[in-house]
């Protein structure tokens, strides 16, 4: 899922200060799970903004709404009336959600309340870790299901780098060395011989250097 975290209140307030009526719009999917932009956070951020704006001498009039998914027009539609009656939207969706809402309501200012961080998982209570950078050509099958692109600090396809200490990455000792994990995992599943192959340089053609990516499924189009 997409993992994000909230921006601090003064930063959000700075963006909203020229408006009067604000819709704080949450998203019920990824950002709810990572405790950044769901119904509960909408309530918290709305309260915080009401108070902070009052203390700054202008009182924002804030409406709260959370829709099922902000990156999907069918759900965004459900925020149409609320968007209409407010001057601007503070979206607590991920970057895709903010943009989808802005595209759907071209004459309404839409601001981002979150910093979208990565594609990752809930590692343990209150801890999320990055697992994938959406490189466009997945190599997980060759590395026992552990991604060297997202999780090795140097993105080495032929690792380790030689700097790892025990199972720690030399770049930051509070991170595990992805290559240690890959080695252990391949050993456990009886595929250590995979490491005898030297991986050729990865093609980044399907990554983001050519601008934003588009996937078209003709079989689903009319």
């Amino acid at each position: 899922m997409i993992v994000a975290q909230r921006k601090i209140i003064p930063e959000i307030l700075e963006k909203l200060k020229y408006h009067k009526k604000i819709l704080v719009l949450g998203c019920g999917t990824c950002v709810t799970v990572c405790l950044a932009g769901g119904e509960r956070e909408v309530c918290i951020i709305a309260s915080a903004l009401r108070m902070a704006s009052k203390l700054h001498g202008y009182s924002l009039d804030i409406e709260e709404l959370t829709i099922e998914r902000q990156c999907d027009n069918i759900f965004i539609e459900m925020a149409a009336e609320a968007t209409e009656r407010n001057d601007a939207v503070l979206s607590l969706g991920c970057g895709a959600g903010v943009q989808a809402v802005a595209e759907r309501y071209p004459y309404k200012p839409v601001y981002a309340g979150l910093d979208t961080a990565f594609i990752g998982i809930l590692e343990e209570r209150g801890v999320w870790t990055e697992k994938c950078i959406a490189c466009g050509e997945c190599v997980l099958s060759d590395y026992g299901g552990i991604c060297p692109v997202a999780r090795c600090a140097k993105r080495l396809l032929n690792g380790p780098c030689g700097g790892s200490k025990e199972d720690r990455c030399e770049v930051s000792p509070d991170r595990e060395c992805a290559w240690q994990l890959i080695y252990r995992r391949l050993k456990d599943i009886g595929q250590l011989d995979r490491l005898k192959n030297i991986a050729v340089p990865k093609s980044w053609n399907k990554s983001r250097d050519g601008g934003y990516r588009v996937i078209i499924r003709d079989d689903h189009r009319i």
Binding site: I8, I9, P10, I44, A48, M51, A52, L55, H56
Partner: peptide, 8 residues
């Protein structure tokens, strides 16, 4: 911490 951000 949030209260500090808010100004309370």
């Amino acid at each position: 911490k949030l209260l500090e951000e808010i100004g309370v």
